[in-house]
Amino acid sequence: MTTVVVIGAGAVGCAAALHLKTAEPSLDVIVVEPDYSYAKAATGKGSGGVRQLFTRPENILMSQYTLDVIEDWQAWGTIDGTPPPELSWRPNGYLFIVGPADLETLAGNYETHLACGVQAEWLEQAELIARYPGLVSTDLAAGVLSPRDGWLNPKVFFSVLKAKAEAAGVEFLTDRVVGFDQTGAVVRAVQLASGRVIAVDSVVNAAGVHAPELAGQLGMSIPVEPMRRHEHYIETEHDANHLPFVKDVDGLAVHAYRDGVSVGKVDFDHPGGEDFTIDASDYTDRVVPAMADRFAGLGRLTLRESWTGLYDQNRFDGNMILGNWPGQLDNFYVACGFSGHGFMHALAIGRGLAELITRGSYQTLDLSRMGYQRILDDQPYAEEGVR
């Protein structure tokens, strides 16, 4: 029997395992994960946002696959006749806003959105002011809204994804991959902390922030590191439920949550490291001024909760690294460097990996530009404008 080991049981690992079993039910698919509490994993800590407002077509089309699943949630999530739990999907849309300095970039990106089938709307300043009274828009030049997009409960989505993989026959092990047996360009086996050795035909490295150290054992250098990201739950005096998921070029990201909003202001220059501490100054020095400038219409703001999680940040260009290293590691596939976008793209990533492993090439969506070769060739493939 052909055996595939998937390292990491987060959203990407489970999606890969599910698509592998769906593509080829005879495969022996084993997922290895040391901590099923997911205490340090990105899975479940994010906003649950799904958006099409990217500038690289691959990212747009991957999001569209996820949106198709969300819109077919009752059928897709039903397992053995049991319907899925409520997804808490909020299709308020995503809104990217810019000032005059970034107007030309936004306009160019808007053309890309339309070319990729996004039902995007261009909103001039007057329209922003009329639609979103909680949003301070007097200094804005324009915005782009994608009304199909929104956000959901990521823990519910993930629980169903993992349950579907289990129902399909995927085996989940509680263990840790600590090494590999390699012959030439082929990984022959994975070594586990328990002492077990599993002979493999293929390996998927979906270990998140730990993916680079595992790949490094095989000589594959990956420019990805953990980067702390803060999120804050703020109660608002005035209702925020009418707002879309708002993002700007400075890293501010705000969406309705509970009795107010969930806010993050990504610091892309934050040094790497597995750091989960909460820095109070992130809220006082970065979020408070940004909210005062942009969301004064929401009235009094009261901080209720703060938490942190880790991006597996690709310092090279901010986009995923997906696939093998041809001629050097033919059957070892990496899936990392999502830089905050892994959850919304997990399904398409899993499908792409399954196609590579079972068919030898991408069949549904060509993701080759997200491959490792661009790292070797020093050819970044970054998003433009709002990230």
Rank of each mutant, 00 (worst) to 15 (best):
G150R: 15
A126I: 05
I222Q: 07
G169W: 11
V190Q: 04
A199F: 01
D139S: 13
L152F: 13
V186A: 05
P212E: 05
V186E: 01
A141E: 03
R176M: 13
K155M: 14
L145T: 12
G117I: 11
P212K: 07
Q182Y: 00
A142R: 10
V177Q: 03
G208Y: 09
D139I: 02
I129Q: 11
L123V: 06
S221I: 11
V186M: 08
P154T: 11
E111I: 02
P154D: 12
E166P: 00
E166H: 13
G184E: 02
L152V: 14
L106I: 08
T105P: 00
V178G: 02
M220P: 03
V177Y: 00
L114E: 11
G134S: 01
Q125N: 15
Q191V: 10
E166C: 06
V204H: 02
F172D: 07
A101D: 15
V136L: 06
E111Q: 15
F172W: 04
A189H: 01
L140Y: 11
V187K: 03
E111T: 07
L106T: 03
A206N: 03
V160F: 06
R148K: 14
G179A: 04
V144R: 05
D149R: 05
L114N: 03
L103V: 04
T138P: 01
E171V: 15
E124M: 05
R196G: 09
N153I: 10
G216W: 08
A206H: 09
Q125W: 01
G150W: 14
L123R: 06
A142K: 12
S159H: 14
E127Y: 03
V118S: 05
V160I: 13
S137E: 05
R176W: 09
T105Y: 02
E213Q: 13
R176Q: 15
L152T: 15
L103H: 12
R188M: 04
A189R: 03
G117N: 05
E111R: 10
H113W: 13
A193K: 13
L152P: 08
V156W: 08
G143I: 06
A115H: 10
L135E: 00
A101C: 01
T138G: 12
D149S: 07
S221M: 11
V190G: 00
V160D: 11
W151G: 11
L128C: 06
E104I: 07
G184L: 10
V160C: 04
L214E: 10
V160P: 01
L161E: 09
D201P: 06
P154A: 07
T138M: 05
V209W: 01
A120I: 10
Y132K: 03
P147Q: 00
V144L: 07
A207R: 04
V203W: 01
G108F: 00
E121P: 09
V177T: 02
P154Y: 08
A215P: 02
E104Y: 01
L145R: 10
I129D: 02
L114V: 14
D201T: 06
S146V: 04
A211H: 07
V160S: 06
D139L: 08
L123A: 09
Q217F: 04
E127R: 09
M220L: 15
